[in-house]
Design a protein around this nucleic acid. Sequence first.
DNA 1: GCCGTTTTCGGCCCGACTGTTTTCAGTCG
Length: 571
Amino acid sequence: MNNRQVADILYDIADMLEIKGEIIYKSIAYRRAADNILNLGRDINDVWRDGKLREIPGVGEALAKKLDELLRTGRLGYYEGLREEIPPGVVAMLAIPDVGPKTANLLYERLGLMSVADVGRAGREGKLRDLPGLGVKSEANILAGIEALHRRTDRIPLGTAWPVAREILGALRAGCSALQQATVAGSLRRMKATIRDIDLLVASDEPEAVMDCFVNLPLVEEVALRGSTKTSVILHNGLQVDLRVLEPARYGSLLQYFTGSKDHNVALRELSLDQGLSLSEYGFKRDGEEILRSDEESVYNTLGLPWIPPELRENRGEIEAARRGKLPKLIELSDIKGDLHVHTSWSDGVASIAEIAEAARARGYQYAVMSDHTQSLGVARGLTPERLWEQRAEINRLNEQFANFRLLQGAEVEIKADGSLDLPDEVLSELDVVVASIHSGLRQERERITSRLISAMRNPHVDVIGHPRGRILGQREASAVDMDRVLAVALETGTILEVNAIPDRLDLDDAHIRRAVGMGVRLAVDSDAHNAEGLAAMEYGVATARRGWAEAENVVNTLSLNELLELVRNK
DNA sequence: GCCGTTTTCGGCCCGACTGTTTTCAGTCG
């Protein structure tokens, strides 16, 4: 049972307790523990084996006992008992917009409804409107909510959401004179790997004018909600965009509040209360008197904290670090001096080596490693040693033209199902940088796939492990890799672990990056580009590294060309 | 159910919006 599965059970319990009408803090406690298990960056089974469940924040005596039962036996009596009381279909009703725990319970207890489909049927028969607290409008909203649920878009990748947000901001700035400032907020500003909706903020003294402007943008399909400070719309592509408007004097508080995360904000408000302040999106209050903040930095300063970068705002220790002046100096995109993982038309890329070189130079890089696939990856037209030498000749030719830039030759060598590499050592030793990756047998059980990675890392010619966990967001779960062992061997052998920047990979993820950083394991942020534009994905990789508290010194492609070559030669 | 340089018990964040209400409950973020 992996972290995700354990967390999902805790989330499920939290929902059931809420439907039952238990005190809300119990549900909050379960959800907080589940969040922390997801953010652990290590396997919950290992934590359990080490007898350290209680060290997970939010896990106390009662939860540790339940987790022990769950991990030991694969079952949890308490959970099964709850599921007898509250059918899973009733929990599923919570996904319907406007249906929360109270309403779900009402539908179950009063009408005996057991599923979303049941609710839809009862709604169409007009049976919901007579329930206490509901009426004709609520009934219609619930039916519309079920419709929306069926065509709902799942969480979308960061790399999809960013361009859309930029487009809307551009349209607002161009077409809306009442607007004074505008920015992205929410999980998108925190650069989470996936986001559910786009949050935008505007400072303006004329909110109504801004709202008019917003709902009339051509991208907008329908207006879901319209108020004086908040408006939500659905775009033609199904994405929801929320816009909030406040006057400029409150903009700092607004931005801080709607950047979140929710947990970060809760912790910040607790800290505020300790200092006799009450904090909301409108500003601070002391004894009922308002204290307005127009910029975000001064919101944090008011609490005696330095400004905290949005990528850190997950309540994973950033507030404590800020208090003690121990915030990391996060890596920036401008620190990146090269890319260690780029494909060309020699394998499955579409750009020539010359085109890649031009794009890399335009980004101000000192170097880029051509790391095409190797022979056994047939679908990607992987390179044989002979083809590699032909490619080397072209790289050498091109390098003669460059003054302050160098193309390096590498390869993304296959780690085969038995753990051996796809090219012999004498070939690997000729390459400048070797990335080794798994593209097959991703579902092997834990011991086997972990051993594969470890034997690759122990090869002295292997410099980097590409996309170590093999996840594809929304499509494929990460492999069962034992990351504790992989991190330990990476440290021991000096092997670099990749932060792959392709938006639906972002692998390693933020939690594992944080562990690697804490241990001193070296990282490389790579675009894994398959065309010239693909180099720009670096932005998402750097953002993910920042979410993992990485500084420039943790990432090898912030090194100069000579420093990098020195490093890989001495592996 | 968790947690503690104020606490081992009594706290545990804040407000908008909506629909159903005669002053508020539920949902959402």
